[in-house]
Simulated assay, not measured.
Amino acid sequence: MQTGIFAYIGSECAAVRTINTTTITLGDTVPVDHADETRIWFADSWQGIDRTDRVGGV
């Protein structure tokens, strides 16, 4: 893991500022309590857009 990327925790999205073995410091956000074992998703530079049209019920 590296700093300077974004993390998604529940409905919160924030920049990752520091990382150590027990704590991830987030910037640009108001601190929010999260339930134990809340999943954290880290975004990297491999992002894109899928412009495929999809229609349900066909």
Results as ranks from 00 to 15, higher is better:
51 R>L: 15
14 A>W: 02
34 H>R: 07
35 A>N: 10
17 R>C: 04
54 R>F: 13
22 T>Q: 14
55 V>F: 05
45 S>C: 09
17 R>L: 10
39 R>Q: 14
53 D>L: 13
49 I>F: 03
16 V>R: 00
53 D>R: 13
53 D>E: 11
27 G>Q: 11
53 D>W: 04
28 D>C: 00
3 T>A: 12
26 L>Y: 05
36 D>N: 11
44 D>N: 13
8 Y>E: 15
15 A>T: 13
15 A>E: 15
26 L>R: 03
27 G>T: 02
18 T>G: 00
49 I>P: 00
32 V>H: 12
8 Y>W: 06
58 V>N: 10
30 V>S: 09
6 F>P: 00
5 I>Y: 10
10 G>K: 02
51 R>G: 01
13 C>R: 14
48 G>Q: 03
11 S>M: 11
41 W>Q: 11
39 R>L: 11
29 T>N: 07
18 T>M: 08
32 V>C: 03
43 A>N: 04
20 N>D: 15
39 R>W: 01
54 R>D: 10
43 A>S: 09
49 I>L: 15
42 F>H: 06
9 I>V: 15
31 P>L: 01
23 T>M: 07
28 D>I: 05
34 H>I: 04
19 I>L: 08
44 D>Y: 06
50 D>W: 10
27 G>H: 05
40 I>E: 04
9 I>W: 01
40 I>G: 00
11 S>K: 11
43 A>F: 04
10 G>Q: 02
25 T>V: 09
43 A>T: 13
18 T>P: 00
47 Q>K: 08
2 Q>G: 06
55 V>M: 10
18 T>D: 02
48 G>Y: 03
9 I>K: 01
58 V>G: 06
12 E>N: 07
30 V>F: 09
11 S>P: 12
11 S>V: 13
54 R>Y: 12
46 W>Y: 11
24 I>N: 01
42 F>K: 08
33 D>G: 10
39 R>A: 14
41 W>M: 14
22 T>W: 02
29 T>M: 06
29 T>G: 03
45 S>P: 00
49 I>T: 13
25 T>P: 00
48 G>T: 01
37 E>S: 14
34 H>C: 04
33 D>L: 15
31 P>E: 08
46 W>N: 14
25 T>H: 02
27 G>M: 08
44 D>T: 15
38 T>G: 03
43 A>G: 04
32 V>R: 15
1 M>R: 09
55 V>I: 15
27 G>E: 14
36 D>E: 13
53 D>Y: 08
9 I>F: 01
26 L>T: 02
